[in-house]
Simulated scan of single mutants.
Amino acid sequence: MNGKQINRIQTVQFAQLSEGAKSPGTGKELNTIEDVNLQLIVELGKTNMKVRDILRIKPGVIISVDKLAGEHVDVVINGSSVAEAEVVVVDEKFAIRITDIVSKQEREERMND
């Protein structure tokens, strides 16, 4: 054959899939990640400050942010805004009530800003 290798093409036969067939692991994917910890942040607002202003912060100092009182707050998971919420008080502790879930399209648009 003068040192050349000849590749032969062969047909492949697959077994028939039954009507109830599932791919391996189907139905258990969520169970395997339910205990994964994620960082959830409720973002009350943002502001930009100079280092000298940050160094002057003491108890009682008021820092203005870009949100108004009563305005919805952002719920951020692992750096991505996923929902909007309102701040509520439950048993004398602050909590949030989810009011809107951010769509996948909105999340992508916010990441591009």
Rank of each mutant, 00 (worst) to 15 (best):
N7E: 05
R8D: 07
R8Y: 11
V12E: 12
Q16Y: 13
Q16V: 03
L17N: 12
L17K: 01
G20F: 07
T26Q: 10
G27L: 00
G27I: 03
E29P: 08
N31L: 02
E34P: 05
D35G: 04
N37L: 13
L40C: 06
L40E: 06
I41C: 14
V42G: 02
L44C: 10
L44A: 14
K46A: 07
K46R: 14
N48K: 11
M49Q: 04
V51I: 14
R52S: 13
R52I: 05
D53W: 15
I54W: 00
I54S: 02
L55C: 03
R56K: 09
S64M: 08
V65R: 11
D66V: 04
K67D: 04
L68T: 00
A69H: 06
A69G: 12
E71C: 01
E71V: 00
H72I: 15
D74C: 00
V76K: 01
V76N: 04
I77L: 13
A83K: 09
A83T: 11
E84Y: 11
A85I: 10
E86I: 14
E86K: 12
V89G: 12
F94D: 00
A95V: 12
R97W: 09
T99P: 11
D100S: 10
D100Y: 03
D100P: 14
I101K: 04
V102R: 11
Q105W: 08
E108T: 08
E109F: 03
N112F: 07
